[in-house]
Design a protein around this nucleic acid. Sequence first.
DNA 1: GCCGTTTTCGGCCCGACTGTTTTCAGTCG
Length: 595
Amino acid sequence: MKKKDNRSNKYIAYLFRSIASVYLIKNENRFKIIAYQNAADSIEKMTQEIYDIWRDGNLEKVPNIGHNLASYLNEYFKSGKSDHFEQILKRIPQSVFEFMKIPGIGPKKAYKLAKTLNIIEAKDCIEKLKKSALKGIIAKIPEFGQKSQDSILNSINLYKKKSVLINRMPMPYAYDQAQLILNYLKKNKDIKRIDILGSLRRKTETIGDIDISVEIDLKNTKNIIDYFLKYPKKIDIDNSGVKKASIIVFPNIRIDLRVQSKKQYGSMLQYLTGSKLHNIKLREYALKKGYSLSEYSIKNINTKKETFFDNEKNFYNFLNLQYIPPEIREGTNEIELAINNKIPKLIELKDIKGDLHIHSNYDLKPSHDLGRNSYLDIFKKANELNYSYIGFADHNPKITNLKENEIIDILKKRKDYIYKIFDKNKNNKVQRFIGLEVDILNNGNIAIPEKAIDYVDYLIVAIHSLFNMNKKDMTNRILKALNNPKVKILAHPTGRLFGKRDGYDLDFEKIFETCKKQKVALEINSWPERLDLSYDLVRVGIQNSNKFIINTDSHATYHMDYLKYGMYVAKKAFATKNDIINSYNLNDFIKWIRG
DNA sequence: GCCGTTTTCGGCCCGACTGTTTTCAGTCG
């Protein structure tokens, strides 16, 4: 178990960052330090396990991993350790790496504290540091002072609280939090415009902190910052200056605010939206064209002439780039596409014409939970959402409690019932389909008798048990289930739940191939804690010509509004209408579901 | 230590805030 952890992307990234820190402390060449940090960034962002890539002999194809790092990693994966890495890490006390986990303490301060206070071992080092602070020893260390000591104490307390909470929140949760501060800021009449920026604007699946910018007259800066710092939910102020401020709100969410005038607001939007990697690549691209970018302007390096932008579109166009939507600014290949005017028209919420994964309260003695609303309630909601079609996808009847003929009977009665209640709504513009979400059993069979399938229009299959199978067995289990011709959708393909359960490992090359062959759509599940499949895998699927469907997995009608979250995932994956089955008009949709 | 539309050598994104040694290093995004 431990061995496997030491091969994970997360651990390797941590290892590289630790080495970068040692080099920083030892005043090594700063570009060497950056190289290790860049390698860590790359590994952290990858979908595939770096260990698997090594096994396939492709290490040097990973961005920011060159000949040297590849050879060290080769030794590390082969023998379980690397002399090179160990020699470097041995050069400083282990406590340093623990101290650096405390906000505001970086490599140099951590090293200075460890050395001066003679705290060497990792064990209990934070407690020892706290004791030194309480005794007032830290304030007497050169380059530290009373304020540093207070700040360290404060940070230790925050760090301890945070360590028992989830570090990143699901994007929909951050979205709600952001609405609260937005409502507060809107009450200030001197704020002319408010934008949510950063990862929340890019709609990444989990969010670390919330970034906000406001457009104001700069003469009001101090008042606005003060107003922000008085936000009632604030539990701490992280920093505040003349251009930005950061507060911590309950329960430990950091909110950053930037202020800017209209004249430079476009540059600010672009800068604060990120991602960091997108901005670095954009700035490198601009440098080659003779421009230096900042959050204030674009500066001509030769003439020193500055150009200002009040909107982002002009900012990108000035650099001869197509406008790049925030959702895809992740530093993959969006800049290359924008140079060649090749950024596709991405999917929008208004393109969505139906939702095919909705649970009702119709009691078919299901294997898992019922929904809370009736078919008619769901139907009414679909009308409100202007959908053209909709699918009822209750869980299959529980096979351990029921005989085969009982299950067939239940599904027949359900079909009759749905036909009966919708007869009087014949002229309605929403077309309904009868679906069923069926468990994939441990052996890959699906949890419904063959004869019962006649009573549904389509099947959704999903894993709901034995999540800890190994990659090969789990892949085969799912592949087997996909072979039934009535199976049209593979729901929440990895089974992940943010903060609760990592997804199971699958061989997606095989899953994608079989889904394509069987014309099965992979689901993008919009449930806030799932957002499954993840956008990077959806993108791989799209490049492989797979089709996807954005569903809500609703268990109550108000859940049907969550579809936007799945749509964001699709958008981040560069999805167009062509890639998303439930953007098809009714006729094309029927062709697919019957095909 | 990485990387390549000017380059296999010579570059490597840009700026805010804090505390302290009051001019700048350290940290962060």
